[in-house]
Nucleic acid binder design. Structure first.
Lengths: 143, 143
DNA sequence: TGACAAATGCGAATCATTTGCATCTACATT
DNA sequence: AATGTAGATGCAAATGATTCGCATTTGTCA
């Protein structure tokens, strides 16, 4: 997603194009890992963009509302993490050692929601799946 | 689980048998829904057991450590919920309308962890799955 | 029964997140 | 390009869930 794409994406959602927003989207777009509001705030400082932490929170909130970002909650971390919404249904594999997060693009629950809907008479809207384990590197250092 | 069972369960885990603990375990054992620390605190008051909220938190913590309870986090609720550990691997189906929580005792991920371990070289320790939707009753009132 | 570790109460601290309000800015319209 | 206005931001204070330090109490075991 180029700068111009970000611009039109914001516009399409009725959001003003501000330095802060484009920067936040840019950082998240390029990040290989979901990150927290605080981390984002610090990354902005590194990039010499002065911003207030509440603005970070507010921006993240609006971007989530517009489905440009996705919220993520990880066991043992009380903060909310945010990641760029690549518009692909995915889950996460989280290393309990180094906390690294891997996206999994295959959903093992395809079809299951229908079965569950039949069994329970619920209408299913979605699900949330995180898988926890140790990455190859942490397995070595955990002996 | 009878009172005596709770007693020996505590003992087996090196925990002292106190009025508070047995009461908390008893409430959770009988509850059809996972509940929060605050709710538990209020339920104790109803039962005329005076207790401090920090004690509730501390008790819940130790009981989780000993695997007598399970923590549960639900999207859109920033509190932690607790449920009695029935020693059965289960997931939860949560109604987005009335917030009711249904336990699902069939795990749709059996076998998948092995596949994932092979693909990623992670050692998998466990997973977390919540499914969201609307219960029959809330479907009606949501028209 | 007495000793001692563990459990509790109380109040204050912490941490992530939200909110109220005054000010500022992007952008549509003139 | 100037301008009006809704929306965006900064700042400081509030909130809500949870944790912590420390003095006191209580369960358990010898």
């Amino acid at each position: 997603m180029k700068k111009t794409d970000i611009y039109s994406e914001l516009k399409r959602n009725g959001l003003k194009n501000t330095k802060h927003r484009t920067m936040i989207l840019d950082i998240l777009k390029k990040s290989s890992q979901p990150i927290s509001a605080e981390q984002l705030f610090e990354e902005m400082l590194v990039r010499k963009i002065s911003i207030n932490l509440s603005t970070v929170y507010r921006t993240l909130d609006t971007l989530c509302d517009k489905n440009l970002l996705i919220k993520l909650n990880v066991k043992g971390d009380n903060r909310t993490l945010f990641e760029f919404n690549h518009m692909i249904h995915r889950h996460h594999l989280i290393c309990l050692g180094c906390k690294k997060i891997l996206a999994i693009e295959h959903c093992p629950l395809e079809g299951y929601e229908k079965v569950l809907a039949n069994e329970t008479n619920f209408t299913i809207e979605g699900h949330n799946l995180n898988i926890y384990g140790y990455c190859p590197n942490c397995q070595i250092h955990n002996l």
